[in-house]
């Protein structure tokens, strides 16, 4: 019995939250990796682009709520996302046209494009704050829990409760669908394969008659979908605050690089690597050991490897270690 309690404890505090957080990071990391692989620069505007998409999701959610359209037990935001994606793609294509295209045509070095993306970061951040303000916003509605801790205890008769938030389930579910669709697109369709070819060897792709303009547009469209959905899911699960989104760029970069930048599948797994290590290393295992160890051996301290204050530091340390020992990332395999 104690053993089952211990397992439920880990599920409740580590596995489920890490899976949801990892999915959110994974979407962002695929976004970073796509831009890096095809447009060939590190996009420092990542976090702010995600917050831009989330902002539109919130605005549409408010609109739908005000006219009384909803999805019942599901959050209204799910209905708002497609509209937000539409605006987001428009914004990205606009930025590409007026900002990035010039440097691409001039074959500027990646460093210069990265600098330019910092300009975009400033502008996007300003636009988001001017439109929706810098404060914390919650836009979740609908049923909050799929399983409540109390109910779970009653049904199973265990000491430990398992609470599963509906946003966690939605996050994981949407991520699976989106990522499968993306990999199907990249690996099975002609356009997707041509994107991979372009990322692999640009000159040869041009010689094969692949149209770079089309590739760039499709990349921004996919990026827009990923950024909006990734951002909206994070906002639903936690809350929306522009500054938090800006900071999220850091673990997202970590995930993309850990997975081998330019490799979407690596980025996907990288998101979970970062999420799980953050949570595993900062969780206090005292209660877990109380269940599995005999009474005489019960620990005094919290059995916490690192204080939760260092959550970010964990992912960055992993990143630094990976960069030093395996700069190409821990997941080998195909580029894009």
């Amino acid at each position: 019995m104690d053993f089952i309690n211990a397992i439920i404890l880990l599920l409740n505090y580590i596995f489920v939250p890490a899976l949801a957080y990892g999915s959110q990071l994974a979407l962002g990391a695929i976004f970073v990796t796509l831009i890096y692989g095809i447009l060939r620069f590190a996009n420092f505007a990542t976090g702010d682009m995600m917050s831009f998409g989330t902002m539109f999701t919130i605005l549409f959610t408010w609109y739908f709520q005000s006219v009384g359209i909803g999805l019942g037990i599901l959050p209204t935001a799910l209905l708002a996302i497609p509209f937000a994606v539409f605006f987001m793609i428009g914004y990205m294509l606009l930025i590409d046209k007026f900002v990035f295209k010039y440097y691409r045509a001039n074959k500027s070095p990646p460093v210069q494009l990265a600098m330019v993306s910092i300009g975009v970061m400033f502008v996007t951040q300003a636009v988001v704050r001017i439109i929706i303000g810098p404060s914390d916003r919650r836009f979740f509605d609908g049923e909050k829990f799929l399983i409540k801790a109390g109910e779970f205890k009653e049904i199973t008769g265990l000491n430990e409760g398992l609470a599963i938030k509906s946003t966690q389930v939605i996050t994981i579910f949407v991520t699976i669908i989106l990522v499968s669709a993306l990999f199907w697109f990249l690996n099975k369709t002609k356009t997707g394969k041509s994107m991979r070819a372009y990322s692999d060897n640009e000159d040869l792709a041009l010689l094969s008659g692949i149209d770079p303009k089309k590739i760039v547009i499709i990349t921004w469209i996919i990026a827009g979908i990923l950024a909006t959905i990734g951002g909206a899911l994070y906002g639903l699960d936690k809350s929306f605050k522009p500054f938090t989104y800006f900071n999220n760029m850091l673990p997202i970069f970590a995930a993309a690089i850990v997975g081998g930048i330019g490799n979407p599948f690596g980025a996907f797994l990288g998101g979970y690597v970062i999420a799980f290590s953050e949570i595993l290393l900062t969780y206090a295992y005292k209660k877990f050991f109380m269940y599995v160890l005999p009474q005489s051996m019960e620990p005094d301290g919290l059995i916490q490897l690192l204080s939760t204050d260092y959550k970010f530091a964990v992912s960055f340390s992993i990143l630094v270690i990976v960069l030093l020992y395996r700069p190409s990332g821990i997941f080998k395999g195909k580029v894009l």
């Binding site: 850091l250 970069f253 030093l324």
Partner: peptide, 24 residues
């Protein structure tokens, strides 16, 4: 440890290390 990295990796690595310094 980090100067051998490519330019954009160096940028990201230094950004993250500075966050660790602030966290400490």
């Amino acid at each position: 440890v980090a100067l051998g990295l490519r330019a954009d990796y160096l940028a990201i690595a230094t950004l993250l290390i500075s966050e660790i310094v602030i966290a400490i």
